[in-house]
Amino acid sequence: MPLSDTPAPMLSVQDLSVWFGDTHNRFQAVDTVSFTLAAGESLGLVGESGSGKSTILKAITHLATDISGHIHLDGTPLTGPRDKSFYSTVQMVFQDPYASLHPRHTVDRCLSEPLRLQGATDIDNRVRQVLEEVGLGAKFRFRYPHQLSGGQRQRVAIARALVQNARLLLLDEPTSALDVSVQAEILNLLSDLRKDRGLTFLFVSHDLAVISHMCDRILVMHQGKITEVLQDKQLQSGTAETPYTQGLIEASRGFTRKEMAGA
């Protein structure tokens, strides 16, 4: 049996391209992207709107189907519709907690349905447990989304992603629709859960500060391509290689007043 120094990656993406639209109006959103994600790692995908960062998550989960390239999860290639074991390993948290919870379903239904799909038996206990884990007590169990604040909704969405004991979380801008003080609570929760459960994160965001707080390694995306791989340290010192990334870093520091042209 051959031994290798580096453990096999949990997720590997090779030469992934993704298209949207039909034949007449086909648009390439992701262009031959490759990366790997080790178990327990937290990898960031940063870029502006239309850079293709969220599309990669859609391709991994088969929500986008017009793709080429290879995706492996735990060494097994992923092709076509995903199976049960995929869904109990990989889960996603969406950007807008106001759109990602079914308006007519209680928190309980939202959390117990994945368990029922999985064929679990101790549904009641597990729902209670996961609610406790994301910092919502039992009193939230039978509430409807419209009775919850944005932060509470996002906690429910995180609980839904974890209730099947997923190991890899795909986080699509999970805090960009929230207030900063709520953002801090959710980011802390995610960090804690990652530590307690040994989760692996693929974290998509347009916010460099958030992503550098959450991730060890960051891929910068621009126009469907990965233009740079940043280590956490580089971000702190503000030394990026490409001018595009440099621009992003500067922009994240706020506004700098320039003298009026000709004045």
Partner: peptide
């Protein structure tokens, strides 16, 4: 409660 690129922290302080 804001994450800061230049001054990373383990946890963010919560309001």
């Amino acid at each position: 409660s804001l994450p800061d690129i230049r001054h990373p922290r383990e946890r963010l302080s919560v309001l």
